[in-house]
């Protein structure tokens, strides 16, 4: 039991550290795409381990504790489903709004595709 409790504290601390790093990443990155990367990504492990740590702490502190654990695992799964969908929608929306990604070597494979899609849409009109 004491091992699980310390594991829970470790997970909560790890989550807090990664959430802080996510915030720092948003502050330091140069453009929207890299900010999405830093922000939503560091928060995946951050939010997941924070919530899971809370669940483990509930598991050892209450009797019966297993509802805590199961419900927090459901929250973790929902975060894992919702997070990539929202960051993908943000990135694609930003590209459709013609925000050019910051690149050092000008690598942008999506440019051509986006042009073709726009031309097709204008033809359709």
């Amino acid at each position: 039991m004491i091992v699980i409790e310390y594991l829970a504290y470790f997970l909560i601390t790890l989550g807090a550290v990664f959430l802080f790093l996510g915030a720092l990443g948003i502050f330091r990155m140069p453009d929207i795409y890299t900010r999405i990367q830093a922000g939503t990504k560091s928060s995946t492990l951050g939010a997941m381990s924070l919530v899971l740590g809370t669940g483990l702490l509930g598991f050892v502190s209450f009797t019966p504790g297993y509802p805590w654990l199961i419900k927090t695992i459901i929250i973790v799964i929902f975060v894992a489903i919702a997070n990539p969908l929202s960051s993908h929608a943000l990135a694609r929306g930003a590209y459709k709004d013609k925000i050019a990604p910051f690149t050092k070597e000008n690598i942008d494979a999506y440019q051509e595709v986006e042009k073709n899609i726009e031309e097709e849409m204008e033809d359709a009109k």
């Binding site: 795409y33 830093a38 990504k41 997070n83 990539p84 960051s87 990135a91 999506y110």
Partner: peptide
């Protein structure tokens, strides 16, 4: 791919 940091699927 999106959940692993460093990569983000745009489309």
């Amino acid at each position: 791919i999106t959940l692993t940091p460093g990569t983000l699927s745009v489309d």
